[in-house]
Computed example of a mutant assay.
Amino acid sequence: MAKNPRILIPLTLLLILTILSPITAIPPETLTNAAETLQNSGYIAMSLTLNENANSLLSETTSATIFAPPDLIFAHFGQPSLSLVQYHFSPLIFSSSSLRSLITRTRIPTMLSDHYLVITSTSSSNHISINNVRVTDSPVFDDGILAVYGVENFFDPDFRVADAPAPNGGGNGCRKVNGGDHGAFHDAGNVLISRGYSVMASFLNLQLLGLGFEESQSQSQRNGLTIFAPVDEVMVDYSDRFPDYPSLFLRHVLPCKVSLNELVSIENGSVLSVGTFLNGFRVNVTRSGVTLKANEVNIVFPDMYYSDWLVIHGISDVISVLELEEDFDESDDDLSEPISPVGSSRGPDGDL
């Protein structure tokens, strides 16, 4: 018999939701703090470059990653062109762990149109490299909105490597993988809290046991998951909408794994459509140039948490329910079929 979903509402979750206010752009104090940290850390030239170009490059993004060459490189090559500066700014934020999770030849979008950075370090490397340029192991600055890493040299915009191999399984960019344990849920929740996604962390800890991840299951019986996590500030509108909590959580969870490597492999202008744990609701992932979106919501922190079977992407807003799709093509690959949420009239195998 299917379980009846129950959303527990801890006081801490209510407090988080009631004190938040929306963020629509990178706050000026973040840019100021980043520039000061760069200056104090020996990246004076990039500090000045950030001050000069922040308004033009970062005014329309809610997060970013900057790669900063040292002053000696600036002195050797002179003041870089605007296009070269754009190539060192990404509209996505990456923690050091998320950078390390990216496989070789994964492309990272940049502010320079139609140009990507490329991960060149391997899984056996003891450091991160992009475009064959070494990146500092930890960020020079990271406040959860903006991350800045030091790099040994300027990136070459003409750098090219062969495309990464197509992801295994499914062929549609959504992989079902086996494995998983509840320790990953706890670790993922801690990462979410540390990065400003505390509300989704609370939902994660309260709900995943109801999505078929019981303790009695072996790892081989558990499928992979992808979670789209809205940043705390955009969750404030849901603070008093308790009946919406099940839908709010379930529509942000996919029953398979879609990492950044799969996201950037989506052809420009095409759509990856995947069913969610909310019965009848699908997420359409699109790529337009360097912009990645899930149902028109920007993906701003890809691979915020990454494991063999679980990946979490930070997004800039809540994925809204406009219209549930009632009919599905029975011939669709099972990777894109929705899984009935806990408490629906269907069991895990579709039986009534």
Rank of each mutant, 00 (worst) to 15 (best):
E60T: 11
H76L: 10
F74C: 02
L57W: 02
D71P: 00
I66S: 03
L50I: 01
L58T: 07
L50A: 02
P69N: 10
L50S: 01
S56E: 12
A75K: 04
T61S: 14
N53Q: 09
S56P: 00
F77C: 05
N55V: 08
P70S: 13
E60P: 00
I66N: 04
F77I: 05
E60D: 14
I66F: 09
T61Y: 15
A68L: 12
L48K: 05
A64S: 14
F67E: 04
T61E: 10
H76N: 11
A54E: 07
L57A: 05
L48D: 03
F74M: 03
A75P: 00
T65Q: 07
L48T: 02
T49E: 07
D71L: 00
T49G: 01
D71A: 01
S56V: 13
S59H: 13
P70R: 14
T65E: 09
T61G: 01
F67Q: 03
S59V: 06
T61W: 13
F77N: 15
L57E: 02
A64Y: 07
I73Y: 02
P70D: 11
N51A: 04
A54I: 03
S63F: 11
N53Y: 11
L48I: 04
N51L: 05
L58D: 06
L58S: 05
E60H: 14
F74V: 01
E60W: 05
L48V: 02
F67P: 11
N55G: 10
N53D: 02
A68Q: 10
L72V: 10
G78K: 05
F74I: 01
F67Y: 14
F77D: 12
A75Q: 12
F74D: 01
A68D: 07
N53S: 11
D71F: 00
P70N: 14
A64I: 08
P70M: 09
N51H: 02
E52F: 07
G78W: 07
S59N: 14
T65H: 13
A54L: 03
L50E: 01
